[in-house]
Amino acid sequence: MQDPDTTIETREEVMFFDTDIGGVVHNIAYLRMIETARTRLAAKLGMRLRDMAQTQLYPVVVRTEIDYRKPATLGDELIISGRLESVERVRFWVAFEIRRAGEETVLITCRQSLALVQMPAGKPVRLPEDWAEKYASLFLKKR
């Protein structure tokens, strides 16, 4: 079972602005929903928005993998589940699934790799030292 401190669940209702003329959710809307879930997951991992603004240290997406399996449509209530998937020395992976509320069928799967970047220099930095211990079961040692 996944640690509740490394998981998040959010809900979104599909609005007109999320869809195309046929009432089907377009790809950028899914990414916005994932962005919301990822931001809330980051807060649970100790990276709150106000803290980031003060320290200028941000988790930056460096890779996104997304599979569109089935479409969501106008008015659907979607559940976005996210989790910390793995941790390395300088990056970490998060994973998301989007389902229609009350259904088990997965509509969207997504994985993202993130790195901590110190702004304004844009310099990547190592993940916090305590992450190796805190998330030991998810820590991937360099091969």
Rank of each mutant, 00 (worst) to 15 (best):
D3N: 15
D3M: 00
P4M: 02
P4W: 04
D5C: 06
D5T: 13
D5H: 08
T7G: 00
T7M: 13
I8E: 08
E9T: 14
E12W: 10
E12K: 14
E13K: 14
E13W: 12
E13C: 05
M15H: 13
D18R: 13
T19G: 13
T19C: 13
T19M: 02
G22Y: 15
G23R: 12
V24C: 09
V24R: 14
V24W: 04
V25H: 11
H26N: 08
H26A: 05
N27L: 06
A29D: 03
A29M: 04
Y30W: 04
Y30N: 00
Y30T: 04
L31S: 11
A37P: 06
A37K: 03
T39Y: 01
R40M: 03
A42W: 09
A43M: 09
A43W: 12
K44S: 12
L45E: 02
L45V: 02
L45C: 07
G46V: 01
M47H: 08
M47P: 00
R50Y: 00
M52D: 02
A53S: 03
A53L: 04
T55V: 05
Y58S: 08
Y58M: 07
P59Q: 06
V60K: 03
V60R: 02
V61W: 05
V61T: 12
V61N: 00
V62L: 13
V62T: 13
D67M: 12
D67Q: 15
D67L: 14
Y68W: 04
Y68I: 03
P71Y: 09
P71G: 08
P71R: 07
G75M: 05
D76P: 10
D76R: 08
D76G: 04
D76H: 13
E77R: 07
E77W: 13
L78I: 12
I79M: 02
G82H: 05
R83G: 01
R83Q: 07
L84G: 10
L84F: 10
L84V: 05
E85L: 15
S86P: 01
V90A: 15
V90F: 15
F92V: 01
W93N: 01
V94S: 04
V94P: 01
A95W: 09
F96E: 03
E97V: 00
R99W: 06
R100N: 11
G102D: 01
G102E: 00
E103M: 12
E104Q: 10
E104K: 10
T105K: 11
V106I: 11
I108Q: 06
T109R: 09
Q112M: 04
S113L: 14
S113N: 09
L114K: 06
L116C: 02
V117Y: 03
V117C: 00
M119Q: 10
P120A: 11
P120T: 11
G122P: 00
G122L: 02
K123E: 08
K123L: 09
V125W: 11
L127D: 09
P128W: 02
W131Y: 05
E133F: 07
K134G: 01
K134N: 10
A136S: 14
A136T: 03
S137A: 10
L138V: 08
F139P: 10
F139K: 02
